[in-house]
């Protein structure tokens, strides 16, 4: 600085604060947005039009290929396909199974992830680190393999039944039942939840816990009153991503679940490919979308709340 004062000050005069350049930021951010509008937003709008029976334009091809298509007589559409799907008792069973599996898997995943996260935060040590590392492994195993491995593990001649058979106990067959779907969903969702929750818990300063102990709080009290509220946003993010991932999943229930009733992701694919009823399939997609949007709203709210707590909004 002292060696080249003129140069330094000149440079600084030219430099403008980055915030001022609005248009550049906007244009840099545009490509992924366009990609998504084009190949997600647009198809979704198109699909929605198709689901309410508007079969003209780009929907013409699929409407002519598909069977059992409800066509609208007017420009605003018809709820006929929705009525058909929502009055189909088999699909309704699939829907309730989907909600049930999602709820059960999410609760289990969060419970396990919290257990691992708390173990790491409060106890620490090599075992805790090993455990959290272990929980990350499924992130790197393709879901197809994981599903197949789980089916083999819990099948009629699988590990669990083999072990119990050593003691002469007849264990249940879980492969191709909803139990296996829950196990598979938990297995595949665990890494993300563990990463989110452990990093959330690790970010809490130890002094916060010590202050609570100093005030007289025991283990349970610290978890409930200090750790969970302070890691609330990461926990909620883990909840939403787990729930959204499970509610729309296909591979896990397709491999590990029964033929019927199964989750809507599988029925969706069946109706599209096997039964060639694309409209019914799209209607199911929108039903799942509505559920997922409800969960997603919680996520957006949580992020907003955290920004507010930190005084950013």
């Amino acid at each position: 600085m002292t060696l080249a004062p003129t140069r330094g000050s000149k440079r600084r005069a030219i430099a403008t604060p980055a915030v001022a350049r609005r248009p550049l930021g906007f244009f840099l951010a545009l490509p992924p947005i366009i990609l998504i509008l084009l190949f997600v937003g647009f198809p979704i709008v198109l699909a929605f039009a198709f689901s309410i029976g508007l079969t003209g334009g780009l929907n013409h091809v699929i409407a002519s290929i598909g069977l059992n298509v409800h066509e609208a007589e007017n420009w605003w559409g018809t709820p006929a396909a929705y009525i058909e799907v929502l009055s189909n008792s088999r699909i309704l069973r699939d829907l309730s199974v989907t909600v049930g599996v999602t709820a059960l898997s999410t609760v289990t995943v969060i419970f396990l992830a919290l257990g691992i996260g708390l173990f790491l935060k409060l106890r620490g040590g090599r075992i805790a680190r090993l455990l959290s590392g272990l929980a990350i492994i499924p992130l790197f195993i393709p879901v197809v393999i994981a599903s197949w491995a789980i089916v083999t593990f819990y099948s009629g001649d699988g590990f669990v039944r083999s072990v119990f058979a050593q003691f002469g106990v007849e264990a249940p067959v879980w492969a191709f039942t909803m139990v296996a779907v829950v196990i598979g969903s938990v297995w595949t969702s665990l890494p993300f939840a563990v990463l989110m929750i452990t990093s959330g818990l690790q970010a809490i300063p130890n002094a916060m816990i010590e202050a609570a102990r100093d005030a007289g709080a025991g283990f349970l009290r610290i978890v409930v009153s200090i750790l969970i509220p302070m890691a609330f946003v990461p926990i909620l993010i883990a909840v939403t991503f787990t729930a959204i991932g499970v509610v729309g999943s296909f591979t896990v229930p397709y491999f590990t679940g029964p033929n019927a009733p199964n989750m809507l992701g599988v029925s969706m694919s069946n109706y599209f490919s096997a039964f060639n009823q694309p409209q019914q399939s799209v209607v199911m997609a929108f039903i799942v979308f509505v559920i997922a949007s409800g969960i997603a709203a919680a996520y957006v709210w949580a992020n907003f709340r955290s920004a507010k707590d930190q005084g950013k909004v």
């Binding site: 002094a207 509220p229 707590d309």
Partner: peptide
């Protein structure tokens, strides 16, 4: 005794106030 059972109270360097 554990910290929670001791008759002492501490003021922490960074105050350790619970933000929530």
């Amino acid at each position: 005794l554990g910290a929670e059972k001791r008759p002492s109270a501490m003021v922490f360097q960074n105050y350790a106030l619970w933000p929530h």
